[in-house]
């Protein structure tokens, strides 16, 4: 971590806040910026509210209207995102030309990486489903249905974006009873994205693994894809680059079998038989004369060497 800036932070708190914004090996979870454009419809307002409830501690909601058109000028949006330290955004607007419009996107290195504009064809909010909801901050299962998702680069980007938007922090361990929320993304033939959200019910199955039943809890929406702006291949690749510290290097000559045993292969040089130490015996010891001769030889050799130098 480094702080290469002209003005030094005056307080320790300020310094930590600045260091928090520096590039890191293991990054914090991305925050989402949720904001409205010049005008919004009731549907869009509900949608943004519902996204905020799912994202909760990791989002910042702006309450005022913003005179921003991200596809014409993305600069103001970038500034807002940097200011609030958010790397995801959901921007809702409503106009005659593009009714019920929501733009989702990501920010990489203080610049917009990609953004996709969706038209909301149908929306049923979280409140309209009258049933018990899931706990906040529970990690949802993400289900992508349909063969279309891998059809084009754009759709692949959308899949990645939706995953980024709706997934919750990567964890090492998870409580089995804590998996209770399912979000499904279905891409139909006419490229409509149908997003449904369910509560997971674990039923008895007579075995260890439970039988799953789902209950819709909302929100439920159908989105059409409007304008898109996806990152160039180079930038997208750069954004996915893993730091060297986290990259797993393959260890040579070490393998693991299915039972968890470690097997290693050791390479040894050819044995020098002439210098092999055998059993020490008195009879094989050097006599004082022999030792003296050897010393003399060594001395002569070293003298010769020094004279060369």
């Amino acid at each position: 971590m480094s702080l290469l800036r002209i003005q030094k932070p005056k307080t320790r708190k300020g310094k930590t806040a600045l260091l928090e914004k520096e590039p890191k090996v293991i990054e914090n979870i991305k925050n989402a910026l949720i904001l409205e454009g010049r005008k919004t419809s009731a549907n869009i307002k509900d949608l943004l509210k519902d996204i905020a409830t799912f994202k909760k501690p990791n989002c910042k909601v702006l309450t005022r209207n913003n005179d921003i058109t991200p596809f014409e000028d993305q600069n103001p949006l970038e500034i807002l995102a940097n200011k609030s330290d958010c790397h995801l955004f959901a921007f809702g607007s409503h106009s005659k030309k593009r009714p019920d419009n929501v733009i989702m996107g990501r920010v990489y290195d203080n610049q917009i990486l990609d953004m996709i504009e969706f038209g909301v064809k149908r929306y049923k909010s979280l409140q309209e489903f009258k049933n018990e909801k899931v706990n906040i901050m529970c990690k949802p299962c993400l289900v992508f249905n349909g063969d279309q998702w891998a059809k084009s680069d754009e759709l692949r980007h959308i899949k990645s974006l939706l995953t980024d938007m709706f997934h919750v922090e990567d964890v090492e361990t998870i409580r089995l009873q804590g998996i209770e929320h399912v979000i499904s993304f279905t891409l139909s033939e006419d490229l409509t994205i149908m997003i449904r959200s369910y509560k997971m019910l674990l039923k008895k199955s007579g075995q260890k693994i439970p039988r799953i039943e789902l209950e819709e809890i909302g929100p439920s929406m159908d989105l059409s894809i409007r304008r898109t702006k996806i990152a160039s291949k180079d930038l997208y690749k750069l954004a996915h680059k893993k730091p060297a510290e986290l990259r797993v290097t393959k260890k040579k000559n070490v393998t693991r079998d299915g039972l968890g045993n470690v097997k290693g292969r050791v390479h040894i040089d050819r044995q020098v038989v002439t210098k092999l130490q055998t059993r020490k015996m008195k009879g094989l010891k050097k006599t004082p004369e022999e030792k003296k001769a050897a010393r003399k030889l060594k001395k002569a050799a070293s003298k010769e060497n020094s004279s060369f130098v």
């Binding site: 971590m1 590039p23 991305k30 990489y108 990645s160 680059k241 730091p243």
Partner: peptide
Amino acid sequence: ALPRARKLP
């Protein structure tokens, strides 16, 4: 894989 938020340190 998901993209990073900032450049590599």
